[in-house]
Amino acid sequence: MVQSLRLNHSHDELHKLINPDSSTTVNQNLRRYIRKTLAIVGKDVTTEIRTKEMVSAMFVFSLLIIFIFNFTFDLRAANVQTLAPGVLWVAITFAGMLGLSRSFVLEHDKGVLEGLLLAPVDRSAIYFGKMIGNIIFISVVAIVVLPVYMIVFNQPFTHFPWLGGIVVLGVIGLSGVGTLFSAMAVHTRAREVLLPIMLFPVIIPLILAAVRLTAAVLDGLLFADVSHWLTLLVAFDVIFIAMSYMLFEYVVEE
C-alpha cells in the first residue's frame, strides 16, 4: 500500500483503489477491520499498563465503596443478603463511571482522536476498540474486587463463577453504552458531570437485572426463577451495543 498511493494512477487504477471489487475484498476488509479494532485495544491496554491511571483509580474507588457501605450499614447477618447485591453494583457502576469518563479524555486533549478520524478506519472499529478496552479495564477491576467483596460481605466463594459471569455481562452493557456517551461528553466542558447524568438513567434496566441476578445467586435461587432477568441483561447488551455502533459515527464526526 505504501508504494502504491499516487494521484497520477491511471483512471482505472484509481477507480479500483477507491471502489475495490466487493467480491474479492469482503474477507480482506473484515480482517483489516478486526486488525484495526484490536490495534486500538492494544494501544489502550499498553497505555494503561504504562500509566495505570484508569485501573488504579477504579480499583481504589470500588474498594472504598465496599468498605464504606460495610461500615455505614453495620451489616449484620440479617441484612447482609438484602444489601449485598446493591453494594456490589454501586461499586462497579461508580468505578466504571470513573474509568469511562477517562476513556476519551486522552484522545481528546492530545488531539489524537483527530488522528484516528483522519485514518481510513471505519468509525465503528474505533467504537469497538474503545469499548473492548473499557470492558477489559472494568472487568479486571471488578473481578479483582469481587473476592474482597465476598470476604467483607461474608459470601461463600462457591458463588464466584456465577457472580463473575453476571459481572462480565453487566460490564459489557455498561461499557457498550458508556463508550458512546463518553465520546459525546468529551467534547463538552462539563464532561465529568454530563457523563453520569446521561448514563445513569439509561442503564437503570441493566442495574436492575444485574442486582436481581446477583441476589438470586447469593440467595441460591433456581435459574428458572430469574431467567427473565438474564434475558433482560443480555437484551440490554445486544440492543445498546447495536445502537451505539450505529450512532458512534455521528457522535465523533462533526
Binding site: 504504562r50 492530545k110 488531539g111 483527530e114 488522528g115 483522519l118
Partner: peptide
C-alpha cells in the same frame, strides 16, 4: 496531516 497538535500518544 500534520497539525500544531502532534496527534501522537505521549505514553507510547
Amino acid at each position: 496531516v500534520v497539525s500544531h497538535k502532534t496527534l501522537l500518544y505521549d505514553d507510547l
